[in-house]
Design a binder for these strands. Structure first.
Lengths: 356, 356
DNA sequence: GGCTGATATGTAAACGGTTCCACAGTCTTT
DNA sequence: AAAGACTGTGGAACCGTTTACATATCAGCC
């Protein structure tokens, strides 16, 4: 583990000069530069980021905290963040908070202790109390996907209210009147927004909301499965399920299977957020897809503007419009004459045709 | 951004005492401890990890580098790593190398500069030349999924040779004799191993290998799509496709769709690695699933043993057995009397039944 | 009463960089 | 020819911790 002074000694210069060469600033003669570079090469010198950061108080690191690393919605955001960050010479370090504010706080403290230059997070809980370390240190921060109370930051999100409204209206348009809503964690704003949209759609259509058909819990698959299971046994009589996100839909599907209910014949199923790979294999689930990659690139851009001080105004909010992708799970494709889509073979589907 | 000396001043003690309290070592009276803790609380003191790391030369950070963050195979490994690491008081920072040794080197240098305590990586390329920074600094390292030449480290992997052999034999057992193999990047050991298994299965069965039906490239979806497209036009006459991983299978599927070929009627399709969420929605793809989560937990355990010096022996290799999951895409389920599985409705499938 | 060992606290020197400042030599400019 | 600007380099302070070492108190014991 060679240090800057070893390099200096070997090159026959001072450590100040090595520093100038390595970080490319200040005056250095071509000759000296070559000598130093040679020594750097020979000793395989990598500047100690801790020592450097200790002095400069920056790390060229941005943190990204997501609640569920296995969900491609969040990893797609991550790709967007990474692409933009790397373009600007920043590295991204990713943390998985597992929908837990405790883990989130641990990560935030870790990131703060390591003096990250900025942070992008999809917060787990409703309150931002555990984020005060960020606020106190004025770490540039961007919130994505879900808001958090008592924490001022730019906010990039999808339009959950309208998305849920439209998705529900889509079901209503297919003559579903009894709809179950399997919501996520009401501590997260996206869950609350989606419920608002769902209720609005019913109310607008003059349909009374049956509270037995709305449930809250966590964003985990198992929980959605359990709640779907419960509503199937305790309050049947509905014809469609609206799952608050892609994972909730998978949970619902599991429960439906266990009850021997087929989708879409016996039950329509739609959800927020796409599952791209699954849709590639079989365009089955009708979803309200959010532009996850764009959410990531935008969040990173806003963050970089804050970090380099190009923007210093009050918190901004960017709202992205989700897109309805009608596939088979809502029953909308029945009787369209699309044999492939209806007989379960994977073949030329409308989507594939559209893509081609 | 309060420092240890500010805390010390406020508590009326020396910074050494604050350090003892904060890091819980050495003698401190209960009274002093309380005073210090109060000051820490009041000033919202978070020790500067850079300063600390500079002195102690450790970070309690382990790095995980994966080639494709969107692929759930790798994020599932990440979950395993994280769970074990957190249990032992280590934090995981994740980097996405995008199958690029250049990005990989950038991350490795970054991690080294930040003095991570250890690293787990699924290497992108064949050579480990760009990893010499790790070796030189004796950073404990674990390689997962794919080996890398010239880099000594514990290695946790699936049995690709046998997995591919069995998967191919499965196709042979279904009377497929003309099989296309869409491989990944031959620079990665897993790709080479899978090809070995594939060829062995054919040879064992006395079938000549048609080289037009074996292609190499990258691990990216688009590339698999292009190659499948090409083989469909240039060398048709095959009845099954073996894709070297889940993403390759998706690419193949896209190409098949474009050509109007249905799976499994017109073409069987199998691959390495599962796509869990997709299988949950529709158990379609027959796959050779690897125990990704276990790969992660094992890798983390081996790494921690290295970090804390409990194990110092030569490089170990752990080989995990993949599992064949027969679903519909290979045609094996046809005529099994399982209506649901064959008519494309999502309902009670054999898998669901097994799970229940 | 002096010794030993445990407890408690402070002083100051690292750790490995960056950067301000000083100094010197070389050009330009007037 | 003197002044000023530019170029090139080194010395040393500093960033915020940890920790070896020094010092001090106190209890227990011969």
């Amino acid at each position: 583990m060679s240090t800057i002074s070893e390099v200096a000694r070997r090159a026959g210069v001072s450590s100040a000069t090595v520093s100038r060469v390595v970080s490319n600033r200040g005056y250095v003669s071509a000759e000296t530069r070559a000598k130093v570079l040679k020594a750097v090469e020979e000793l395989d010198f990598v500047p100690n980021a801790m020592a450097r950061g200790l002095k400069t108080k920056q790390s060229r690191l941005i943190a990204l905290l997501v609640p569920e690393i296995v969900n491609s919605f969040y990893t797609t955001i991550a790709r967007g963040v990474e692409d933009v960050a790397n373009e600007h010479g920043f590295q991204v370090i990713l943390g998985n908070t597992d929908e837990s504010t405790v883990k989130e706080k641990t990560y935030v403290d870790l990131m703060v202790a390591n003096h990250i230059d900025g942070i992008i997070l999809a917060p787990a809980g409703r309150s931002g109390r555990h984020l005060k370390a960020l606020q106190a240190r004025e770490v540039p921060a961007i919130v994505v996907d879900r808001s958090v109370e008592g924490f001022k930051a730019d906010f990039v999100r999808g339009d959950s209210v309208n998305g849920a409204l439209q998705l529900t209206q889509h079901l209503l348009g297919l003559n579903h009147r009894q709809i179950v809503f399997i919501n996520g964690d009401p501590e997260t704003s996206s869950a609350r927004d989606r419920e608002v949209g769902f209720r609005a759609a019913l109310t607008n259509a003059g349909i009374a909301v049956d509270e037995r058909w709305i449930s809250h819990g966590t964003w985990f698959i198992d929980d959605a499965e359990a709640r779907t299971d419960r509503v199937l046994t305790e309050a049947p009589g509905f014809t469609a399920i609206f799952a608050a996100n892609n994972f909730m839909a998978i949970g619902a599907l599991r429960a439906l299977r266990r009850h021997g209910r087929r989708v879409p014949e016996d039950m329509a199923l739609v959800c927020f957020d796409d599952v791209e790979v699954a849709a590639e294999i079989d365009p089955f689930l009708t979803v309200m897809a959010q532009p996850a990659y764009t959410m990531g690139t935008l969040a990173a851009q806003l963050l970089l503007e804050r970090i380099n001080g190009r923007f210093t105004g009050p918190a901004r909010e960017v709202v992205l419009t989700p897109r309805l992708l009608v596939r088979r799970s809502c029953g909308a494709m029945s009787g369209t004459g699309n044999a492939e889509a209806d007989d379960g073979h994977i073949g030329a589907t409308p989507e594939a045709a559209a893509r081609a």
